[in-house]
Amino acid sequence: MTRRPFLRWLRRNEAGNAVVEFALTAPLFLIILLGILDFSWQFYAKLELQGVVNAAARAATLEGNALSQTALDNEVRRKVLNVFPRGEVTFVRKAYDSYSEVGDPEAFTDGNGNGRYDSGECFEDVNGNASWDADRGQTGNGGAEDIVLYTASLKMTRVLPIWKFMGQSEQSTLVASTVLRNQPYNAATSTKQVICT
């Protein structure tokens, strides 16, 4: 076979096209598939964590559980680790006087007008720790009729290696939180005082 007929034959020959096309598209397809599976797995983990946190937070607002917060945390941890055995679960509780105060800073007198708290300015110490805080919440479950922000974090190792291709961390941290009001089982107390340092 001479050169020209061979080139013509080579152009018309379609044998092996599927292998070449698959080799070009397979990596992209696999990355997308692994990404969907990883996202679905983390979405499921987030739903599981949120469901357990909601149930524990409802129980935490009852007077009978006011002193047994560790037991509720341990129950949340146990349920989450049943599904994600290598995870690490941590908890944070912050109590507020009203829903509108959740996440707000402690009020202060802006003496120099720069819009932020500076040392020496007077502030209302809502949480009783004698220092100004960007979040006025008092650590813990608070008292009767307090609003409680209950947050649980699940740190886990991702099971699929897609994080390598996406430039992400092998560790993933999922956070679930809920806000509820404690039952009115006692007279509410206040620790507010104005401090000028």
Results as ranks from 00 to 15, higher is better:
M156E: 12
A130K: 10
F108E: 04
G143F: 10
Y150H: 08
G120Y: 05
Y117F: 15
K155E: 14
N114G: 08
T109Q: 12
V175K: 09
V89W: 01
V126K: 11
L149Y: 04
T139V: 11
K94E: 02
S98W: 00
T178R: 12
G137A: 10
Q138L: 14
D133P: 00
Q168P: 00
Y96L: 00
A134M: 06
T139E: 12
P161H: 12
V89N: 08
N129Y: 04
Y99N: 05
R116G: 08
F84Q: 14
D118K: 07
V179N: 09
G120T: 08
E101Q: 15
S131M: 04
A95Q: 00
G111T: 14
L149S: 05
I162P: 01
M156K: 11
E145Y: 01
D97N: 05
R86G: 15
A95C: 02
D110W: 14
P85L: 09
F91G: 12
L149A: 13
R93F: 10
S119Y: 09
G87K: 07
W163F: 13
K164M: 15
V159I: 09
P105L: 13
T90A: 12
S153K: 14
D110N: 11
L160P: 02
K155Q: 14
N141V: 03
R181G: 07
M166H: 00
E88L: 11
M166A: 15
T178L: 03
E121H: 04
F91M: 10
K164W: 10
Y150K: 01
G137I: 02
V102E: 01
G140H: 04
K94H: 08
S119M: 07
T173W: 03
V92Q: 15
R93L: 11
E106I: 09
L154N: 08
T139A: 14
L160C: 11
G167T: 06
A152T: 10
R86I: 01
E106Y: 02
V92M: 08
S169A: 15
S169R: 08
Y96K: 11
T90K: 13
L154K: 06
F165Q: 14
A134N: 12
S119H: 00
Y99E: 08
D133F: 04
T109L: 15
D135C: 06
F123W: 14
A152H: 00
S172E: 11
M166F: 10
I147E: 02
A152K: 05
W132T: 02
S177T: 05
G140P: 01
D135E: 09
A144I: 03
L149E: 13
W163V: 09
E170N: 13
G115K: 07
A152C: 07
E101M: 09
K155N: 13
S98L: 06
A152Q: 07
T178G: 00
N112S: 10
